[in-house]
Simulated assay, not measured.
Amino acid sequence: MILSGKSRIAGVMGWPVGHSRSPRLHGFWLQQYGIDGAYVPLPVPPDRIEPAIRALPALGLAGCNVTVPHKEAAFRLVDLLDPAAKRIGAVNTIVVRPDGSLEGRNTDAFGFRENLRDGAPAWDPAAGPAVVVGAGGAARAVAVALLDSGVPELRLVNRTRARAEELAADLGPGVPVRVIPWEWRASALADAGLLVNTTTQGMAGQAGLDLPLAGLPPATVVTDIVYTPLLTPLLKEAKARGNPVVDGLGMLLHQARPGFQAWFGLAPKVTPELRRFVLEGL
């Protein structure tokens, strides 16, 4: 790390924030490219998030990432929003503009799309419907990414149907989205071109996703946003069946690229060396 009186500083706000892989990820790029800058953890409790975000320009920070539980609060507190953040309803990246105003961005959809492109380059959005399990913030970002990619239909599957219906309504009228009841989840896979798990089911310490894969076509790409473990029970089962699988680590890596470029002035690359370095910290 190279630091001087002119160092560019960014960080990640969350509560807690000690588990975040972002300082390791951005630190790798800062060192690799020899940039005069630093990326630091910023632990901020929920009742202090507004003054913390407002203080970014006064403290001379270039901006920050925002993680759980602050993404929705950041959405309300910034001065302007990029189109992706408006559609998703959450902010994960804040950029301090030259005039001191705060721009809120959401790079999760970008990260998901780039990870899928890297991990399954043969996947064709037009090949069939995309099945998305979950209806939380991550599902919103994934849904936006898939609709923008041109999937013919988006099938939302969630234990609480009302949340899936709310997400479908928020995506707007005329959008090819269908809510599938949880009890019919297996039938939603019949002609799917892509299956995405956006829930925490399958994460280390949690039960695996309860989704029978018997009806999944052999060519369907299966991906999970969870990356601890790298191969979740869902991905292990899909891989054993012969389905192409994409782990969730790349989404974390790719979503960081736009923020790094905005703060430090250089477009970083996601490489095998970066993946290995971040995995060593898991």
Rank of each mutant, 00 (worst) to 15 (best):
V91P: 08
T223F: 01
P41H: 03
R159I: 10
A145F: 12
V95F: 02
P121E: 08
P69I: 02
V95G: 01
E103H: 12
L154P: 03
L116H: 09
V179S: 14
S4F: 01
N243T: 12
G248N: 15
K269Q: 06
W263H: 14
A55S: 08
D148L: 08
A74S: 07
H26F: 10
P268C: 02
A214F: 08
V95I: 06
R113N: 07
L156A: 10
F110Y: 15
D108H: 11
L81Y: 01
G208L: 03
E50F: 03
G11L: 01
A256Q: 13
F28Q: 10
Q31G: 15
L216K: 04
Y33M: 14
R159E: 04
A62G: 14
G37S: 10
M1Q: 00
P229S: 02
G34R: 15
L61N: 07
R159C: 13
G18F: 06
L266N: 06
A207N: 02
R105Y: 09
A130P: 09
Q201S: 11
V78H: 04
E165K: 02
A207C: 02
Q32E: 15
M13K: 02
I88Y: 05
F112V: 00
A135Y: 00
A109W: 14
T220N: 05
M203N: 12
K269F: 00
P233W: 06
K236Y: 00
N197A: 05
P212H: 05
R140P: 03
G136P: 09
K86A: 10
C64E: 13
D82H: 01
E183G: 13
Q255G: 11
V17S: 07
